[in-house]
Amino acid sequence: MFTKPIHTKLLLGFLFIAALFLPLYVPDSYMFQIVITSLLFAIATSSMNLILGYTGQASLAHGAFFGVGAYVVAIMTKAGWSFWIALPVSGLVATGIGFFIGLFAFRTRGHFFAIVTLCFGVILFQVAENWIEVTGGQNGIFGLDSATPIPFPFFGPIEFSSQPAQYYLVLAVLLLTLFVLHRVVYSIFGLTFMAIRNNEELADALGINTFATKMVSFAIANFIAAIAGGIYATILGAVSPSAISIMITFNFLIFLILGGMATLPGAVIGAFMIPIIMEFLQFMENYRMLFFGALLVVVIIWFPMGFFGGLKTINQKIIAWRQSNTSEDSNA
């Protein structure tokens, strides 16, 4: 389970090197922009994976926590705070709000949990729209400075207004997120998450404190979502209610399900593939969304486990092929 076959390791190594040197070969600023936003969405989708994929709780407030992070960073940096202080604070604020929501929401299960969190998401959206003194209302908060430069010996300060700097910032946070999630998921604690997903009554009977466990998973997921939102604010330089809308949640949900739920790479693959497909479909103009809607249905019917599920099947075939080869070798 923990050791990967050699060709998977090679692939991961190749991807890592490719990612590291991406600014050298990315064709234009448009492609670069898509890569940056996809990485950013990959962070948020991965954290949604923790609560939905691993813990089995369909939180439809996830986009709202992303938005909370964006707003906190926007408000604080506008008030003169350093981005590097605002970012962790945004995570903590989202965790706090999430704790409050969890007190109500974790009384319910299944569809009911989804709807209660959806309602909280809508309420947060409306607050962002209407609390003009703080959130700027529909205009939002705009004209944000990019992240505070980091003073660096010998090289001088690293500025974050350029695309390469933004790229490495997002890439670093994504790798950190994946590392943390990997550690969490494959810990004893992670196993209790999955126990709840698979059978909550049973987990309860085994002495797992399901309420506390779900709350911890929710807190981690919300913290990371808010961090992603905070970075989003500094990269875009403007935050408006669309950053906290239900559409953000739906997008993450689509990325996650089509990428492959309950697998770490699935969330990343989904967050990359869908926006890129959407960009390729631009040539269809009026018919683009028509096609995309049909595509969603088709993919979910034929790849119920998402793209990564499909890849896994191929992978297993390769392993089987290699094993049959080696066994033939040993026979010979």
């Binding site: 949900l253 969304m289 028509l290 995309f292 809607g293 969603l296 249905v297 979910i300």
Partner: peptide
């Protein structure tokens, strides 16, 4: 649920 979102995007378009 995802399929339903696909269907609604399709119908609206």
């Amino acid at each position: 649920f995802i399929a339903a979102i696909g269907a609604l995007i399709f119908l609206e378009s």
